[in-house]
Simulated scan of single mutants.
Amino acid sequence: MTTAPWVHGCADDADLVVAAHELQPLLRQNSAANEAAGQLTDAVVDALHDKDLFGMWVPASLGGVELDPVSSLEVVQALSEADPSTGWVVTTASLATGTGGAYLGDVAVAEMFRGPRFPVVAGQGTRPGKAVRDGEGYRLSGAWSFASGIKHAQWIHTLGIVEESGEPLIFVLPVEKAELIDNWDVLGLKATGSIDYTIEDVYVPAAFTHSGPTETPVRGGPLFTLGIAHIALIGHSAWALGVSRRMLDELCALVRSKSGRPGTMAAHQGFQAIYGEAEARWHAARSFVYETWRGASETINSGATLSVEQKTLLRLALYNATWAAEAISVVVYRAGGTTALRSGVMQRYFRDMHAGTQHVTSAPGVIEACGRYLGGLAPAHDWLFMDLVPKAS
C-alpha cells in the first residue's frame, strides 16, 4: 500500500469543517474576481491547498482525511455559501482526486501523490470516449465537455469505453496529454472554468485506470464503498443548500437594511409569508439531505452496502434540494428588485443557481426513475450512476 511522504495540516473531519468556515471571508472577497477570470484566483487555490481541501476525500494512507459524508455536506455547503464556483470546483476535483487515490493501481498513486501538495484531478466522468487495448494499457481517444476545475489540475480523470469488452473505465492521465478548449462562455458558474477537451490516441497504462462504477477500493475505508456516483451526490446536494442559504441571507440583510422606512418589504405581510415559506422549504430540503446521508453513513460504517431504496432516496434528496434551491433563488430575485437585477451577489448567485440545475444529477430522468422505484414499478432494478437499470441476472 502506497503511503504519502508528507504530513498534511488537517488531521480529522472537524478540522476541515472549521477550515471551510475560516475560508469564507477570503472566498467572498474573491468571488467577483473568480468570475471575471473564468477560474479561481491564485489566492483561492493556494488557500484551498493550504487547508488540504482538495484532499478531503483522499484515503488516509495517502495523507487524506476520508471525510465522512455528513461532515462533507458541511464543508461543501460552507464553501458554496461563500462562493458557488469554489464549492463546485472543490466538489468535482476532490471527487476525482480522492477516488483516484482509492481505486487506481499502486504505480499510478505513487506517481500522483508525491507531494508537497495533493494533486488536483479534474475532467468528465459521464460522456465516454473510446479505448482500445494496447499491450499492458489502452489507447484513448475522445471529446469531452464540462471539465470543472481543469485549469487548476495536473491530471485528467475521464471516462472511456473499451471497444473489445464494452467495459466503462476511468482513465487518469497528465493534463498536458489533452488539448484544452477554452470555450466556457456561460450564464453562471463562470469561475469553474468547465471547458471542453479532446484526447487523441494517447496511451494510458492499466495502473492508471479503474472500473467506472466500482465500489471496491484498493485503499481507504467505508467512504469508498459508495463509489464515484454516490460521493458526487454528497457534493451536489451540499452545493444547492449552500447557494440557496446565501441567497436567503442576502435577501434578509437587504430587507433589514430598509426596515423602518414607509412602504418597505419589512412591514409587508405578503413578503413575510413568502419569506417564511422559502425558509421552510430550505430547512425541509436540508433535513431530507442530512437524514438520508446519516442513514447511508450508518450502513457503510457497519460494513453493509446501500440498499436500492437508500440509493433512491439519496438521489431524491439531491433532486429535491436542487429544485428547492432554484425556487428559492426565484423568490429572492423577485423580492430583491433592482438590487438583484444589477451586478452583485444576488445576481451572480441567481445565475450560478440556474447553471447548477443543468447538471445531470438533477435531470428529469432522475425524478422519473425515483418515482418508478418508490412506486413499486421497478422491483428488480438498481442504480448505475443516475440511471435505474435492471439488475444483472
Results as ranks from 00 to 15, higher is better:
160 G>N: 01
76 V>M: 14
121 V>Q: 04
138 Y>P: 00
233 L>Q: 13
36 A>P: 07
287 S>N: 06
158 T>E: 05
2 T>Y: 09
319 Y>H: 15
391 K>V: 10
220 G>C: 15
283 H>A: 06
292 T>P: 00
222 P>K: 05
39 Q>E: 09
124 Q>N: 15
353 M>I: 09
231 I>E: 11
388 L>R: 13
8 H>A: 12
40 L>I: 05
70 V>Y: 04
13 D>K: 10
277 E>H: 08
258 K>L: 11
42 D>L: 01
152 H>N: 10
107 V>H: 13
367 I>Y: 05
165 S>D: 06
342 R>E: 15
391 K>S: 08
140 L>W: 03
76 V>Q: 06
14 A>S: 15
191 A>K: 02
6 W>M: 08
184 W>H: 15
68 D>P: 02
12 D>N: 14
222 P>F: 09
247 M>H: 00
225 T>M: 06
48 L>I: 13
293 W>N: 05
101 G>S: 10
188 G>F: 06
265 M>W: 12
147 A>V: 00
259 S>V: 13
156 I>C: 03
287 S>M: 10
346 M>F: 04
114 R>M: 08
96 A>Q: 09
137 G>D: 09
64 G>N: 11
383 W>I: 12
71 S>E: 07
229 A>W: 03
239 W>Y: 02
288 F>L: 15
183 N>Y: 11
236 H>P: 01
113 F>I: 06
177 K>E: 10
314 L>N: 00
251 L>F: 03
166 G>P: 01
194 S>M: 01
155 W>N: 03
221 G>Q: 13
255 V>S: 04
284 A>F: 03
230 H>Q: 15
204 V>W: 03
265 M>G: 04
